[in-house]
Amino acid sequence: MGTAVGLAHVIGVVIALWTFNGRAGGSFWHGMPPMLMLISPEWLIASVGKALLWEVTLVVWLVGGRPSSPWGIRENSRSGRITRLSHAERAARDRAAARTT
């Protein structure tokens, strides 16, 4: 039983990292290139930490009303570096996402 719980946690970590990548603006299907991870160390460290404690992260996200990710790629970014967006940038990204769905 312990093995099953441990395996479920490891699978959850992988799924959490995949989801954080998609929510930050990366592709759900193609993943984030390693170079982009290296130029976005703040996002990488925060995401790995949240993924390791994905159960807590999920509860906090659900209790908080499922807010959009504060991380993303700025619209005028030439490098594609993921950074924390301002409230205005997040609102613009959320409006653009709502128009496409």
Rank of each mutant, 00 (worst) to 15 (best):
G64T: 00
I73D: 06
R78C: 06
S86M: 00
R78S: 11
G72T: 00
S69M: 02
R66V: 02
S77G: 14
V63P: 08
R90T: 00
R74H: 15
E89C: 06
A91K: 15
S68Y: 13
R78H: 12
E89M: 04
S69A: 05
S77H: 10
H87E: 11
R78Y: 05
R66A: 04
G65D: 12
S77T: 08
R90L: 01
R84N: 05
G72S: 01
R84C: 06
A88G: 11
N76C: 02
S68Q: 12
D94N: 09
L62H: 10
E89S: 12
S79T: 15
T83C: 09
E75G: 12
H87Y: 09
S69W: 04
S77M: 09
S68V: 01
R95C: 02
R95W: 03
I82G: 08
R78M: 01
P67M: 01
V63T: 09
L85W: 15
R90C: 04
G65K: 02
T83M: 11
L62Q: 05
T83K: 10
W61K: 02
R90Q: 08
A91E: 13
R78W: 07
P67T: 00
R81A: 15
R95S: 04
A88L: 02
G80M: 06
R66S: 04
R78T: 10
E75N: 13
H87V: 02
I82S: 06
I73H: 09
S79H: 12
N76M: 10
S77D: 12
R95P: 00
T83F: 11
A88V: 02
G65N: 14
R81F: 13
N76H: 14
A88E: 14
N76P: 02
R66N: 05
E89Y: 14
R95Q: 08
G72I: 01
S68M: 07
R81W: 14
W61T: 00
S79Y: 08
P70Y: 14
D94A: 08
R90I: 01
H87A: 06
G65S: 13
I82P: 07
D94M: 00
A92V: 08
W71E: 04
L85A: 10
V63D: 05
G64W: 00
R95M: 05
A88N: 03
E75S: 12
D94L: 03
P70N: 08
R84M: 01
N76A: 11
S86F: 00
V63K: 05
R81V: 06
R66P: 07
R74E: 15
A88Q: 15
W61Q: 01
W71Q: 03
S86T: 07
I73C: 09
T83R: 11
P67E: 04
G80S: 07
W61R: 03
P67R: 03
T83D: 13
R66I: 01
N76E: 14
G64E: 03
H87G: 07
P67Q: 04
A91P: 11
R84A: 07
E89G: 13
S69H: 05
R95G: 00
S69Q: 06
R95K: 08
